[in-house]
Design a protein around this nucleic acid. Structure first.
Lengths: 204, 204
DNA sequence: CGCCTTGTTGACACCAGTCAATTCACGTGG
DNA sequence: CCACGTGAATTGACTGGTGTCAACAAGGCG
């Protein structure tokens, strides 16, 4: 269907989109890590979703007139650009494909709900364990896990913004997970060393 | 298009759907208040969205095979039932209508993101103010606001489950909002008495 | 080699949770 | 019409998880 007209490379920590943008195209993440975030008045920040390769990172921008959040690259990224006219044509002619696209936005919503439950009702430890469980499975699904390990180019400060915690506390919780032998985390590589216990802690 | 085949009445505090359900139909809320929630192992609960009349409360169930959350009525409710075959037919024949339905699930996602920012980065006071701002506008849009007031058949315990707080703290925060003259809350009726300041506190 | 981001640590403060008792608002039946 | 029962709201005392501040260590990159 010739969807991806061109690709684009994004440098780490650069914005792929800004809050309030009215884009005429959507992007598929082909390589790297990205995340959606909202900025509050005094600089506080909330990340609402991490994206792994294969994700349609701003498909909802096709239906929402303007984006309600920004998107940033967490490491070097490559995205594929899909013009909205192309999506319109898909919805006119390919109902099955349309439902698949729709499904992908619905799955984003389901992940949001998981995060709400994690932030609202889980401990900081459970929240972090849950996040690693989610990323592990999603990365595994696209073949980016080897020997229980995956690249994770996200800083503790970004993790803090994702979980609604302070960076200091994220650091302590991460140490707890490592000390308990649930995960290992060296540089930009995370290894799940005890999947069963991690799941238990996460109530996954 | 003859979508709503029949209606159904739901008693307060009854579940409209359970987590894991594989429904063959979706529901439109015609009257009353409902909310989506997830139950954790030890009984903790997280509400992820409040529904007002006019909302398609489980449209995502059409695409997700099984529901990842339950839905409950917060007061007496009436819903309209739409079989999934009917939705399939819409996606096959009415692209424009399909995009509208899709949009409604995308808006749910946007609200989830708002809540994430509220829970993660706002104070309890800001969180509650924000929730009232959201409900006020959504209810106004469907004509359920009169003289800045609306019916709100939600208990403080349910509010607590929505904001990730304890009922005790919700009670204290609610008193603060009332004491400051931002809202009035008698019985099941909430009145916005100072919209400007409420918006400011909520960073809305 | 030296800057600069990121990670780590300790001391202390405070927001929000927990527990438990009490009051209030209603709806029901005698 | 009033006593009672029940769920919801309210209050106080105390605890504890997280945040804040501030300093320092550890790498990575030009």
């Amino acid at each position: 269907i010739g969807s991806v007209a061109l690709t684009r490379d994004i440098a780490p920590h650069r914005d792929l989109a800004r809050e309030g943008d009215e884009p005429g195209e959507s992007n598929i993440l082909l390589e790297g890590f990205a995340y959606r975030y909202r900025l509050l008045a005094d600089g506080r920040r909330q990340i609402s979703l991490f994206h792994v390769p294969g994700d349609f990172i701003d498909l909802h921008g096709f239906l929402l007139k303007r984006l309600d959040h920004a998107i940033a690259a967490a490491g070097p990224c490559r995205v594929g650009v899909v013009p909205h006219e192309c999506l319109t044509r898909i919805t006119e002619n390919f109902p099955h494909l349309t439902r698949l696209l729709w499904l992908s936005t619905v799955v984003d919503g389901a992940i949001h709900r998981e995060w709400l439950a994690a932030m609202g009702r889980r401990s900081a430890l459970g929240n972090m364990a849950h996040l690693f469980c989610e990323l592990f499975l999603r990365l595994q699904a696209v073949g980016l896990v080897q020997d229980q390990s995956f690249r994770f180019p996200v800083t503790q400060a970004e993790l803090a913004d994702a979980m609604g915690l302070s960076t200091v506390h994220v650091n302590r919780i991460a140490q707890e997970l490592r000390g308990g032998g649930l995960i290992a985390w060296h540089g930009r590589t995370v290894t799940i060393t005890d999947w069963q216990r991690l799941r238990t802690v996460a109530e996954f």
